[in-house]
């Protein structure tokens, strides 16, 4: 049976369609004002890619910030559970998942069976979340997607002491005024963000392997800075876009549900 997962975040919406554990199609788009609108549109994108219609989908699980507003879901699951399920499927050696979302950051530790053992999140303060990067990208007039590549060109190590978005932005403005290079400023910003996320992660005891999920995982600058801040190399989730991990996990939940119900009905 074909099933789907839909993850409506604060910044982006994601959908994944799978059949017997195999990904048929994925879609990512920038979220609209209304979560229901984002959900319909991103799901249609994934359906079009797989040349399917909604009628072909047997079961849909929703997750993310806007999960309660998705019109077509059969069930909702927490983001923590979905990211864990997705990452575990891709890499069974994973024990720690760091997910930096648009408005929060979460760290989850898994036990040896892939179950969530502990998790912690920050949604009270914008430091260490995707918003930090969003604000800085705007201040430096650089597209969000290019931050990682640009930071890789850094030649001089600068220090941004603030983790607070407001204070770090002030530091950025004075560095710009002093004539510092954008690449160097970005590199320093990635380290500031990483410091905040690393302290969140360490508060629930780090176990290897550590992976990063969510859109920010595609920013190589943050990925490397976080490895440095934690003092251990983060593992890349091979072959799968880390941004769709929540939606993939949701789809895997859908598959599980369908299989368990199938067994029940045979009884």
């Amino acid at each position: 049976m074909i099933v789907a997962g839909c993850d409506i975040g604060s910044l982006t919406a994601k959908a994944v369609i799978i059949e017997n554990g195999k990904i048929l199609s994925t879609a990512v788009m920038r979220a609209k004002t209304r979560p229901s609108e984002s959900a319909n549109e991103v799901m249609q994108m994934a359906l079009d890619k797989a040349k399917l219609t909604m009628n072909d989908i047997g079961y849909v699980v929703g997750t993310g910030y806007g999960r309660e507003q998705i019109p077509f879901v059969d069930q909702v699951e927490s983001e923590i559970s979905c990211h864990a399920k997705g990452a575990w499927q891709i890499m069974p050696s994973v024990r720690m998942i760091i997910d930096i979302g648009g408005q929060d950051a979460k760290a989850t530790r898994l036990d040896d069976n892939g179950n969530v053992a502990r998790y912690i999140y920050n949604d009270k303060c914008a430091a260490g979340t995707g918003r930090f990067l969003e604000v800085m990208a705007e201040a430096l007039e650089v597209p969000l997607e290019e931050l990682g590549d640009l930071a890789a060109q850094s030649t001089e190590k600068l220090n941004i002491s603030s983790q607070c978005v407001i204070f770090a932005e002030t530091e950025v403005v004075s560095l710009v005024n002093e004539g510092s290079k954008t690449a160097d400023i970005l590199n320093a910003l990635h380290h500031s963000l990483a410091k905040r996320v690393a302290s969140l992660t360490r508060s629930i005891d780090v176990k290897t392997d550590v992976v990063m999920t969510g859109g920010v995982a595609k920013n190589s600058g943050v990925f490397n800075a976080l490895s440095e801040a934690l003092g251990l190399p983060l593992k890349a989730l091979d072959g799968v876009d880390p941004q769709i991990m929540g939606a993939l996990g949701a789809a895997l939940y859908a598959e599980e549900k369908v299989k368990s119900e199938g067994r029940e009905s045979k009884k």
Binding site: C125, R131, V165, I166
Partner: peptide
């Protein structure tokens, strides 16, 4: 003020 609002977060950004 007649009915003061309550801010959900003290973070300046939020």
């Amino acid at each position: 003020a007649k009915e003061p609002i309550t801010l959900a977060s003290t973070c300046t950004v939020w």
